[in-house]
Design a binder for these strands. Structure first.
Lengths: 220, 220
DNA sequence: TAAATACATACTAACAGTATGTATTTGGGG
DNA sequence: CCCCAAATACATACTGTTAGTATGTATTTA
């Protein structure tokens, strides 16, 4: 294959192939050659021209998949003047999550935590980042400041909720549970969050239900 | 090195070396040769005589480290005739966890989730097993049966508590937090658990404090 | 004493990564 | 607008390392 006038198309192709393979076969289970074989005609030289290592490809593919999801969710906080409590509910409302659900489809990993361990680790790390440096803790603190949230341990509550939402409620690395079980998890999470002063809102149940519908329709 | 009359000694040496290396350098970062180099005089042939793959070595090393910890905790439930609620509290009391804490020292992984991703995945998977097929859910159901526990979503509560205890309260894959932050997590977890009907007991705070002391003394 | 066991030695195939070559595009001076 | 040098986008060919295998040999067991 000759040189492409628009190299970002090549990069996109590489990352698309990489993401799917990393999800299905895991990080270890995917070789650079596996990725190259899906880029018909292209060779390893092209890949190593755009990326300097396998790890960099993985990180780039992961970021590329996550960025629009995170950005959309964060953008939900920028509209109007809401209290902290309202912003918190909005974060778990369908409008913040469901429109991006199809994108999650592209990074549906193998339902085997060990095979997906690297993705799991990214999500685990991301849960702390999301709560600490990201949007969750700031929103809670905003709510405390404006009097709409009463929470004695904002950091801990944010971390716990973030972890449970990312690694348990959305069972990315486990087989899809029956719908009523996923709803039970949402209910349970909401109750636990409420106990530490965080009202996630009733909409979290609808959000969960809609996510389940999309995933189930996609045949997971 | 000649043939050892007691091959289980050889196996133990291999697993000891493997566990430490896997923890410090991660699964990917550890080669079979690295392990062999720590078994002075022994060669790769010996290793592949006792184990058929790197993965099997990892699993064996992990099991070997975890078994006594899990067994001890489970044994705490066998004494006397306790109600489900009493058993639940006992699971998080110092006597169930602290005596085995030194053993955890041997499998202290790198405080980098990605490097430790395989261990993290095992712990993640283990959290579900522990709650579902293990001892936590049975104890809760026993408590419901004998009337000492009122919990509407026993499975969900068990999973959530198990996940938070294993991946958050005991921050194996993250740098050790200041003591007061770990205690805040324990307090927060207890509050959340209480909201879904699980009383982990006040002793969980002492347990956490003692774990912190041991880990901190060990220089983490 | 024959079979099984516990290793050592020597090798292979696959893999991540590198060095280098070559065509194509870009961008600036005339 | 054209020419040419530099940069870019790849391809080709190679290297070192690694997990794993095949096979040989001494020791123990039964």
């Amino acid at each position: 294959m000759g040189r492409n006038k628009y190299p970002e198309e090549t990069v996109a192709k590489i990352l698309d192939a990489a993401l799917e393979l990393f999800c299905v076969r895991g990080y270890e289970g995917t070789s650079i050659q596996d990725i190259v074989d899906r880029l018909d005609g292209m060779t390893k030289g092209a890949v190593y021209h755009h990326f300097k290592s396998k790890e960099e490809i993985f990180n780039a593919a992961f970021d590329r998949a996550m960025t629009p999801i995170v950005e959309h969710r964060r953008s939900m906080l920028d509209i109007g003047n809401m209290t902290g409590a309202q912003k918190l509910k909005r974060l778990y409302a369908p409008e913040s999550v469901v429109p991006q659900i199809e994108l999650w489809a592209r990074m549906r990993p193998a339902a085997d935590p060990v095979k997906s361990s690297r993705l799991l680790a990214m999500q685990y790390q991301g849960s702390f980042d999301e709560s600490a440096d990201g949007y969750l803790l700031p929103v809670i603190e905003e709510g405390i400041a404006d009097g709409s949230i009463a929470c004695e341990c904002p950091r801990e509550a944010a971390e716990a909720v973030s972890l449970l939402a990312n690694l348990w409620l959305l069972p990315l690395f486990r087989p899809l549970e029956p719908k009523e079980r996923m709803l039970a998890r949402a209910q349970c999470l909401a109750q636990m969050a409420a106990a530490v002063g965080l009202d996630l809102g009733n909409e979290v149940l609808q959000t969960t239900a809609q996510i389940w519908d999309v995933w189930n329709r996609a045949g997971w």
